[in-house]
């Protein structure tokens, strides 16, 4: 029980470090990098909740989250490059 709480707290610290970088980041790419990392950390959260409860639809959420966060990163990167999405 205590071990699981500890794992959640460490992951929460990771999320707050990412949020700090999003708030402070001097340039736009810094913020986009932090958003990408935040998306991957949330997948870890969901996997831990899936183990806790033993329900497998949390893993479906993790897969969908990973793929959608990837799409968002690619779209933002294309925008930074100055192109439209279909190039």
């Amino acid at each position: 029980m205590i071990v699981e709480m500890l794992l959640f707290v460490v992951l929460l610290i990771c999320c707050f470090l990412c949020l700090y970088r999003i708030a402070r980041g001097p340039t736009v790419p810094d913020r986009v990098v932090a958003i990408d990392i935040l998306g991957i950390v949330v997948v870890g959260f969901t996997a831990l909740i899936a183990v806790e409860t033993g329900k497998d639809f949390y893993m479906n959420i993790a897969i969908a989250w990973a793929l959608i966060s990837f799409l968002g990163t690619i779209a933002l990167a294309k925008h930074l490059e100055g192109k439209s999405f279909d190039e």
């Binding site: 340039t27 990098v33 990163t73 990167a77 294309k78």
Partner: peptide, 18 residues
């Protein structure tokens, strides 16, 4: 997906003049 996203971000950052 993660290295692909990192690669796209690095390229976009360089092209946007960082």
């Amino acid at each position: 997906t993660s290295p692909t996203g990192a690669h796209a971000l690095a390229r976009g950052a360089h092209k946007s003049g960082v």
